[in-house]
Amino acid sequence: MSASMLSAADRRRPWLLLAPSLITLFVLMIVPIGIMTIFSFYEFVTAGVEKEVFTTANWHEFLTDSFYHMFLWKTIRVAGITAILCALMGYPAAYCIAMTNYKHKWLLLLLLIVPFWISFTIRTFSWIHILGEQGVINVLLLKLGLVNEPIRMLYTEGSVIMGMIHFLLPYMILNVYVAIEGIDRNLISAARTLGCTAWQAFREVVLPLSLPGLMAGLLLCFVLAAGSYVTPQILGSTRDALFGNIIFDTIMDELNWPMGSTLSLVLLIFLGAVAAVYSRYMGLSRVLKGLSG
């Protein structure tokens, strides 16, 4: 069916089908981001009150106040560490699942999906029972007499990162797994027959061909970690707050809507830029594949 033969009704039909979704997203996502932009130029008077005049004071405050720079930098650092640790832990596991001769491979894959069904809040607070003063590790160490008093592991940056890895690892493994699974096994056999050791075959064939999956996993983990707000609240002390927590406090506690809007836009622009750089080199379609599991 060529385009010229389509009747007006045919041409309208996809838009009718799309209309409910597009209108929903337009009103609930695009318009609010527009309002956010306007609010970021309003003047903050006092909690819950703002003056509708044009001012760049909020942006000026963000650009000059080192308080915000520190939290932005910390968020980048924590999200970066999280993403890299996810890659280091997730890659071998994904490789193993893709390459195994194990009969019940479907079970290994199912177990990767199961965490997505378990409440994120529960998965996060479960780490309190592992790292806390009455947690598994401390109780064990005390019983064995290796320490005299509980080690402080909970409510630190480390426990926040641990919680985020726990939540993001399945995303990483699934992304890398899909990439490795797609590699033609004959290439590996060919490399081996031509004299490569197992390690050389991995380095020269598997690793480069799975790189797009690894990069997609890194992007996904970084973006989700940098936008997180609940994990630091459950597993961190007040000093371990990330940018998301600053936004929440600014809006929900200080009721400073103009500054909250500015900070939200900063997060959106920053993560958008990261994704744009990524898609410039890798294409976003891979990430979408990873999202749909």
Binding site: L25, V27, L28, M29, V31, P32, I33, I35, M36, F39, V223, A226, G227, Y229, G244, I247, F248, I251, W257, G260, S261, S264, L265, L267, L268, L271, A275, V287, L288, L291
Partner: peptide, 18 residues
């Protein structure tokens, strides 16, 4: 696809502003 990629915090603030 955008709502899956935009940070939830931003979407959260956006609807409140609306």
């Amino acid at each position: 696809i955008a709502p899956a990629l935009v940070p939830e915090t931003v979407l959260g603030v956006g609807l409140l502003l609306l």
